[in-house]
Each structure stands twice: as structure tokens, then as C-alpha cells.
Deep mutational scan, measured.
Amino acid sequence: ERVRARYDYEAQNEDELSFKKGDIITVLEKDDGWWKGRNGKEGLFPSNYVEELE
């Protein structure tokens, strides 16, 4: 599954994923509120910062 970033997100910890608004992220795992994904790097990000691609 792929999602698009709705906002910029700056990683707060080294296991998190940074991205810019409009970036496409491949979702690897979904957990409550935090998803694991890849966009060149791999890490956790808040699920409310992304939207599913149509």
C-alpha cells in the first residue's frame, strides 16, 4: 500500500521517517497511530500525516 504525505514531518527519533508534503511512502506495517514505511529510508511515522492514494 502506498500513501501520500499531507504535511511535512521531521523525525524526532532515529527510528522515525522524515518526509515532505506530497512524498509517496510505501506502508510496511500499520499500528495504532504509528505506521512503518519506506521512502528510500525506513521508519515510523504518524498515520494522521498521510492519506491513502486513490
Rank of each mutant, 00 (worst) to 15 (best):
E1A: 13
E1V: 15
E1I: 15
E1S: 14
E1H: 15
E1M: 15
E1W: 12
E1F: 14
E1C: 13
R2A: 09
R2P: 04
R2T: 11
V3N: 04
V3F: 07
V3M: 11
V3Y: 12
V3K: 05
V3S: 03
V3C: 10
V3E: 01
V3L: 04
R4N: 05
R4T: 08
R4L: 09
R4Y: 00
R4G: 03
A5T: 04
A5C: 07
A5L: 01
A5Q: 02
A5G: 06
A5K: 03
A5W: 00
A5N: 02
R6Q: 09
R6K: 15
R6D: 05
R6E: 06
R6H: 06
R6M: 14
Y7M: 15
Y7D: 10
Y7C: 15
Y7Q: 13
Y7K: 12
D8H: 04
D8T: 05
D8V: 00
D8G: 05
D8F: 00
D8M: 00
D8L: 00
Y9G: 04
Y9L: 00
Y9V: 03
Y9F: 08
Y9P: 04
Y9A: 02
E10K: 08
E10W: 09
E10R: 05
E10H: 09
E10Q: 12
E10D: 13
A11V: 02
A11T: 04
A11M: 05
A11L: 03
A11K: 04
Q12E: 10
Q12L: 10
Q12S: 09
Q12D: 08
Q12M: 12
N13S: 14
N13R: 12
N13C: 13
N13W: 07
N13Q: 09
N13E: 08
E14K: 11
E14H: 09
E14T: 10
E14W: 08
E14R: 07
E14I: 11
E14S: 12
E14G: 12
E14D: 14
D15N: 15
D15A: 13
D15V: 08
D15G: 14
D15L: 14
D15E: 14
D15C: 13
E16D: 04
E16S: 01
E16C: 04
E16K: 00
E16R: 00
E16N: 04
E16W: 00
L17T: 02
L17Q: 02
L17W: 00
L17C: 03
L17A: 04
L17P: 03
L17N: 02
S18K: 01
S18Y: 01
S18T: 11
S18N: 07
S18R: 02
S18F: 02
S18C: 06
S18I: 01
F19I: 06
F19T: 01
F19C: 04
F19P: 02
F19A: 00
F19E: 03
F19V: 03
K20R: 13
K20H: 11
K20Y: 06
K20P: 01
K20S: 10
K20E: 08
K20F: 08
K21T: 10
K21M: 11
K21C: 08
K21F: 04
K21I: 10
K21N: 05
G22R: 01
G22C: 08
G22W: 00
G22F: 01
D23C: 06
D23E: 10
D23W: 01
D23K: 01
D23P: 00
D23A: 07
D23L: 01
D23N: 05
D23H: 04
I24G: 02
I24K: 03
I24Y: 10
I24A: 02
I25W: 00
I25H: 02
I25Y: 00
I25L: 10
I25V: 06
T26S: 09
T26V: 14
T26Y: 09
T26C: 11
T26E: 15
T26G: 06
T26K: 07
T26P: 04
T26I: 15
T26F: 09
V27L: 09
V27E: 00
L28N: 03
L28G: 03
L28I: 14
L28R: 02
L28M: 13
L28P: 02
E29Q: 14
E29N: 12
E29Y: 09
E29W: 14
E29C: 14
K30V: 06
K30I: 06
K30Q: 07
K30E: 04
K30F: 07
K30L: 04
D31A: 15
D31P: 09
D31Y: 15
D31V: 15
D31C: 15
D31T: 15
D31F: 15
D31L: 15
D32G: 15
D32V: 07
D32M: 06
D32P: 07
D32Q: 10
D32F: 06
D32C: 10
D32S: 09
D32A: 07
D32I: 07
G33I: 13
G33C: 14
W34N: 05
W34R: 08
W34E: 05
W34S: 06
W35N: 06
W35E: 06
W35F: 10
K36W: 11
K36Y: 13
K36T: 07
K36C: 11
K36E: 06
K36I: 11
K36Q: 07
K36F: 14
K36P: 05
G37N: 02
G37I: 00
G37Y: 00
R38H: 14
R38I: 13
R38F: 15
R38A: 14
R38C: 14
R38S: 14
N39Y: 13
N39K: 11
N39C: 13
N39M: 15
N39F: 15
N39H: 13
N39A: 14
G40D: 12
G40R: 08
G40C: 10
G40A: 09
G40F: 09
K41F: 11
K41V: 10
K41S: 12
K41I: 08
K41C: 08
E42D: 10
E42F: 07
E42A: 09
E42N: 06
E42H: 06
G43A: 03
G43N: 01
G43D: 02
G43Q: 01
G43L: 00
G43C: 03
L44S: 11
L44A: 08
L44T: 11
L44Q: 08
L44K: 13
L44C: 11
F45G: 00
F45D: 02
F45S: 01
F45N: 02
F45T: 04
F45W: 03
F45V: 03
F45C: 02
F45H: 00
P46W: 05
P46G: 04
P46Q: 07
P46C: 07
P46K: 05
P46T: 01
P46L: 09
P46M: 07
P46I: 03
P46E: 04
S47K: 11
S47H: 09
S47A: 14
S47C: 13
S47P: 14
S47W: 07
S47F: 08
S47R: 10
S47L: 07
S47Y: 09
N48P: 06
N48H: 14
N48K: 10
N48R: 12
N48T: 11
N48L: 08
N48W: 15
N48Y: 13
N48C: 15
Y49N: 06
Y49L: 14
Y49M: 12
Y49E: 01
Y49T: 08
Y49S: 08
Y49K: 07
V50F: 04
V50W: 03
V50M: 06
V50A: 07
V50H: 03
V50P: 02
V50S: 03
V50D: 01
E51V: 07
E51Y: 03
E51T: 07
E51M: 06
E51F: 02
E51A: 04
E51R: 00
E52P: 15
E52H: 13
E52G: 12
E52D: 14
E52M: 13
L53F: 13
L53K: 04
L53G: 06
L53P: 07
E54G: 13
E54R: 11
E54Y: 11
E54T: 14
E54S: 13
